[in-house]
Amino acid sequence: MPGTLREQVASPLAAATDQMLADRAADGDLRAFEVLVRRYGPLMRVYAIRILGSNDESDDVVQESFITAWQQLGTLDDGSAVKSWLMRIVSRKSIDRLRARRQHVNIDDTDAPAPDHHAPHALAEVESQTEALARVLAALPEDQRRCWTLREVAEYSYGDIAAEVNLPLSTVRGLLARARKTLLREMEEWR
């Protein structure tokens, strides 16, 4: 099969720039594409997990994102921008999933991946700060969580986030400020 993994050897491809890899992958080079999958797959999964929670759907979304990327690489003009291009694909597919899931479960705006909201005090002693942060992030409203994830995981500029979520820049800034205030307030509780 064309997708059979080759033996992992130290190939010059592994050290190649994003631009070189994207150019070669756009020409149909599966090995270059594989390097991109390894380079950005973990970040894309972290992204999907932030939006969807940790489950099979996150895996599916990342897999679908790469298949789409493979098919559409030829449309990417600037190969050096492949990272943010991949993050945009996984971002869109994650949101599609979230909407589809909501239609299925027929719940309203409450956010699905949030675990039970325990009282922070009760958990403070057993939770590390990162775990607590992950939990609070999961409990953020969807629009705030999406902006936060685009900013902090995908490293988007405010302007790029506004374009991606199709909201005015001022709204995006407001959502991010609100997310940060919530996180700050929760962090005060953990100390």
């Binding site: 599916d60 789409t68 599609d96």
Partner: peptide
């Protein structure tokens, strides 16, 4: 190597993946 030559395979696969999938992509 021998690859699937029928366009049907490609079409079905693409359609499956491009759909707003509610489940994992079809097995090859």
């Amino acid at each position: 190597a021998l690859y699937p030559a029928g366009s049907i395979v490609a079409t079905v696969l693409t359609a499956t993946l491009d759909a707003v999938a509610h489940r994992a992509p079809a097995a090859p």
